[in-house]
């Protein structure tokens, strides 16, 4: 099995006497866009600081691109945007990037800065002071700084926090471009569940320092789906068809909503082909059958409620 790009294995961390991370483990595979979710104070930022070598774990193993992150030089292939953008407000965008270019030892820095500022659509504002930038522009510049040295993996801690909707869309496009066009591995910590659902293929959910959920997003959505199927028909189904549907052993509920029947199925006995055959046999003309998957919001709420009950 290929080595993961980013990995935390059985990591424990206390801040003072308070345990902040408890046996935290997750892997981010090369090319993944990994969503890291959790409520405030759950341990996301601490995990990220451990992953960036800013905090030392009390126990457990942290590796970045197969290397020990506590060795300073090993962070050269890693880019990041932290909770605070970390930009020098009195300096221009170019000066901010030039400084980091010298820290990373970027070759041909002027050319690279031009390239990267074009990518985040800030080239025309390159010589403006950062203090004159909007929140969205600052976040784009922080992303530019993260990509300046062409890293293999990026750790982004709430990059769209406080950014207006159009700014969020722009940032999302840049993140998707980094992952799909440039093949970067991305760990994205966010409170914006809609954003995570749109861009991430894998997620982990942390709560009170414990990973509560971890896996491929589509699989989680299917496995945690409510067991509902929506059947779109050309004309609304009749009452008799609805009654017959409810008599099926796998059907728990059936509700008619205009040209759609929403059928609640027993999760243990989900016989979708049988239902479809029955409807076709009754002369119902079907346009589309959709299995209803759980949204990330539903997954998030369910898992946190379960955790609260423990």
């Amino acid at each position: 099995m290929a080595q993961p790009a980013l990995s935390l294995s059985h990591v424990n961390k206390k801040l003072g006497t308070r345990p902040v991370l408890r046996d935290v483990s997750f892997d981010v595979a090369h090319g993944d866009i990994f969503g890291y979710l959790g409520p405030n104070g759950a341990g996301k930022t601490t995990s990220i600081r451990v992953l960036l070598g800013l905090l030392r774990p009390d126990s457990g193993v942290v590796s970045v691109l197969g290397q020990d992150v506590s060795v300073d030089a090993n962070r050269k292939r890693l880019g990041f945007v932290l909770e605070s953008d970390g930009l020098y407000e009195n300096a221009t965008a170019s000066d901010n990037l030039a400084y980091y270019a010298s820290i990373y030892g970027v070759s041909q820095p002027t050319q690279r800065i031009d390239e990267i500022l074009s990518l985040v659509r800030l080239k025309d504002r390159a010589h403006d002071r950062v203090s004159a930038y909007s929140k969205g522009m600052k976040q784009r510049l922080a992303l530019a700084r993260a990509m300046l040295h062409n890293p293999d993996a990026l750790v982004l801690d709430e990059p769209t926090a406080g950014v207006d909707p159009s700014g969020q869309i722009e940032l999302r496009e840049i993140i998707l471009d980094m992952a799909h066009e440039q093949g970067k591995t991305i760990l994205l910590s966010s409170h914006n569940l809609d954003e995570v659902q749109r861009v991430c293929n894998r997620i982990a959910l942390i709560d009170r320092g414990v990973i509560r959920l971890y896996g491929k997003l589509d699989e989680l959505q299917r496995s945690m789906g409510g067991g509902e199927v929506a059947v779109e028909t050309t004309v609304p189904v009749t009452d008799s068809v609805l009654t017959e549907l409810l008599e099926q052993p796998s059907v728990i509920s059936a509700e008619r909503r205009a040209n759609t029947v929403v059928i609640g199925l027993n999760k243990e006995r989900m016989d979708v082909p049988g239902i479809v055959s029955m409807l076709v046999g009754r002369g119902v003309k079907i346009e589309q059958v959709r299995r209803k998957e759980a949204t990330l919001e539903e997954i998030y709420t369910t898992i946190l409620k379960e955790a609260e009950g423990r």
């Binding site: 300073d72 605070s84 970390g86 407000e89 990373y104």
Partner: peptide
């Protein structure tokens, strides 16, 4: 105070 130091320390700078 402005947390720019945290970003600097996350780079390869020791």
């Amino acid at each position: 105070a402005k947390r720019t130091l945290e970003s600097l320390l996350a780079t390869p700078a020791s």
